[in-house]
C-alpha cells in the first residue's frame, strides 16, 4: 500500500513544487516507485520543473473524467525509471477535482506505487483541500518569515480537521516541517526567523532545512529537479530530507553560517 504525501503550505511561492519534484525524484532514486501529481489545476508548473512539459498528452482531470486511463496520462521520467509524473490540466479550474474522482485515482495508483506525492496549490480552497484530503504524511513547506509561518499554521489546522483521517477518526496525518529558502547569515542579523523560532511556533517535527541557493532557480529553469545537482547545498539538503523521510537519522546541515575561506573571500563564491 502506497504512502500518500502532500506537499503543502497555504502560502504561494514558498517552494512547494520545487520540493515535490525534488522529494519525488529523491524517493525514486532510492528505489521507491514514486508518482508525483500536480494538483494545481489551471496553473500547471510541475511538468516544467520536472522537464517533461513537451510530453504532456493527457492530464489528471482527463483521468478523473474517464477520458484517458492512468497509463496514458502518466509520464515516465527520463532520468529515473521508478519515477512518474501526473500533470495537471492547464485549461480547467480547481472545481474539476472531486473527492470521489481524486479518491478513485489515488486508490488505483496506490496498488502500483510505494509513494504518491501530491503537489498542492497555494491557498485553502478546493484544490488544496483535495490535495491534502487523502494524505498519510504532510510536508508543510515554510519560509522563515512570519506570513508563511502563519499560513502554515492555518494549513496544519486544516490537516487536523478537514482531512480524511480527521473525518474518519483515524490516526492523524503525520506532519513534518520543511523549512525552505533558509539563509543562516540573515538569521544571524535578525532579519529572518531561525529554525528554532519556526519549530517553536508550529510545534511539529523538522524534516529538513533547505538553504537559499542559486542552484534552485537554475534547476527549475532547466527542468532538472534540484536534488539531481549533488554539487549544490540545496540538492544535498533535499537528499538528507528524503533520507529522513525514509526513517534514517541524518543531522541537519547548512543551518549555520559557512565560514568563507581565504580564497573564496578573494574570488567570491
Amino acid at each position: 500500500m502506497a504512502q500518500i504525501i502532500v506537499v503543502t503550505s497555504g502560502k504561494g511561492g514558498v517552494g512547494k513544487t520545487t520540493s515535490s519534484a525534488a522529494i519525488a525524484t529523491g524517493l525514486a532514486l532510492k528505489g521507491k516507485k514514486t508518482v508525483v501529481i500536480d494538483f494545481d489545476i489551471g496553473l500547471r508548473n510541475l511538468d516544467l520543473i520536472m522537464g517533461c512539459e513537451r510530453r504532456v498528452v493527457y492530464d489528471f482531470v482527463n483521468v478523473i473524467n474517464g477520458e484517458a486511463n492512468l497509463n496514458q496520462a502518466m509520464i515516465k521520467d527520463k532520468r529515473c525509471d521508478k519515477l512518474f509524473v501526473l500533470p495537471a490540466s492547464q485549461t480547467r479550474d480547481k472545481d474539476a477535482l472531486t473527492k470521489e474522482g481524486v479518491g478513485k485515482v489515488l486508490e488505483d495508483l496506490a496498488k502500483e506505487f510505494d509513494f504518491i506525492v501530491c503537489d498542492s496549490p497555494a491557498g485553502i480552497e478546493q484544490g488544496a483541500m483535495m490535495a491534502l484530503y487523502f494524505a498519510d504524511i504532510a510536508i508543510v513547506t515554510t519560509n522563515p518569515e512570519v506570513s508563511s509561518v502563519r499560513d502554515s499554521d492555518r494549513i496544519l489546522g486544516m490537516l487536523q480537521s478537514r482531512s480524511r483521517r480527521a473525518e474518519q477518526n483515524l490516526e492523524p496525518i503525520k506532519e513534518y516541517l520543511l523549512l525552505t529558502r533558509y539563509s543562516p547569515s540573515r538569521v544571524k542579523t535578525g532579519e529572518m526567523l531561525s529554525v528554532e523560532d519556526v519549530k517553536e511556533i508550529l510545534a511539529i517535527d523538522l524534516l529538513g532545512v533547505i538553504p537559499e541557493s542559486q542552484a534552485v532557480l537554475k534547476a527549475s529553469n532547466s527542468g532538472v529537479p534540484v536534488i539531481i545537482d549533488q554539487e549544490s547545498d540545496a540538492g544535498l539538503a533535499y537528499s538528507d530530507t528524503v533520507d529522513r523521510l525514509l526513517g534514517e537519522d541524518v543531522p541537519v546541515r547548512f543551518i549555520t553560517e559557512e565560514k568563507k575561506g581565504f580564497l573564496k573571500r578573494i574570488f567570491g563564491s
Binding site: 502563519r150 499560513d151 499554521d153 492555518r154 496544519l156 489546522g157 486544516m158 487536523q160 511556533i201 510545534a203
Partner: peptide, 24 residues
C-alpha cells in the same frame, strides 16, 4: 495545538488546552 483559523468554544464550561494557541 489550536492552529490559526481554528475556533474552540467551551459552552457553560472551563476550557483547558494541552498545547499552544496560535496567532489567528
Amino acid at each position: 495545538n489550536i492552529r490559526s483559523g481554528q475556533q474552540i468554544y467551551a459552552k457553560d464550561a472551563d476550557l483547558i488546552v494541552f498545547g499552544a494557541v496560535g496567532n489567528g
